[in-house]
Design a protein around this nucleic acid. Sequence first.
DNA 1: GTCTATAGAGGGATAGAC
DNA 2: GTCTATCCCTCTATAGAC
Lengths: 200, 200
Amino acid sequence: MNSATRDKIIRTAMDLFWVKGYNSTSISDILSRTQVHSGSLYHFFPGKQDVLIAVLETYRDEIDVGLLDHAWEGVEDPVEKIFALLNGYRTHLLTTDYQYGCPIGSLALELHEPDPRVRELIDRNFRNWVDAVENCLVEAADRFPRDLDRRALAEFILTIMEGAIMQARTAQDIGLFDRNVDVLREHLDLLMKQRAMQDS
Amino acid sequence: MNSATRDKIIRTAMDLFWVKGYNSTSISDILSRTQVHSGSLYHFFPGKQDVLIAVLETYRDEIDVGLLDHAWEGVEDPVEKIFALLNGYRTHLLTTDYQYGCPIGSLALELHEPDPRVRELIDRNFRNWVDAVENCLVEAADRFPRDLDRRALAEFILTIMEGAIMQARTAQDIGLFDRNVDVLREHLDLLMKQRAMQDS
DNA sequence: GTCTATAGAGGGATAGAC
DNA sequence: GTCTATCCCTCTATAGAC
């Protein structure tokens, strides 16, 4: 089931779907970029949607090595891990002139009536991301209010990331990203002050 | 420049782009739904993208009558206006089985390398929405900290709306929308408490 | 597993009569 | 302004030799 060709197709499709979106990426785009021929692609994948599924499965399986490990390199504090994660997306926006946002979020909004398998995989990717943030909040539990709904806050942080990228990309202005993150930081600070008052 | 046919095309395209997205809506879709023929459409619009531009201009020009007036009917409190606005999107999600999210946000993420005019119009629509929320915050200025960055908070609220819709649609679970809004309400409450302390 | 060639459908857009 | 007919292109997918 695995092969160098199959993998090359997936890696290329990951990139093309990220930059151009799913519908705007043609099979020919993938073929010319990979130097793979039609027959080979259809040997590994029944159709275009199956390439998408493989891409989403790869994101799902590689969230640690593909995203978190890199973003968290040298960052120990669990709250700062959250901001380091957000900062990774910020860097992508800046270094690619606002071309690379969140690959999952873009697909989520581009595909309006997705196949159930596709929808499930997008959802799974979101939940894995939220899990990672929730774990940070658990690590920092002693700094937040005792009755904090950590799951809800982690979902909220995913929302900030997605909304901040959407606005910054559209305006082509990183200030929109930064101000969104500033408001989030303000919110977390207020929560931590609440906890300090609980403890005193 | 105006005519019943032209308007019918725009209204139909507004709906189709909202539900299916831009790329997945074909000219034929618009023609069959409107019972307009190819020649008429191309009489009014040079091409498909010009239909999109007209759609975005219509959203821009009708934000009051098409969105705000309805959402704010019977709501006087400026802070509750914000939540009433969010609740309008919630209702759309529920009554359409998660098919109708935010028409502008979907286009923002679907179109990866939009024509400058299209990007500008999406941005303009976002800024008009943010303006409306910022006005609510100005109306309620006496309840929030004196040094509040109201623009940043209004942008943040757009972010919440877009991110909450994205997650709720993907999970097909309104709980994701509601929990996001709950966290926002918690944040506004904390800010209002801050102001109360400034005043005391 | 890989290659070439091409089928078959649907896309946006146009021509020209009325 | 509206209608019919149709062009041309690109898209996904397939056939069949190697």
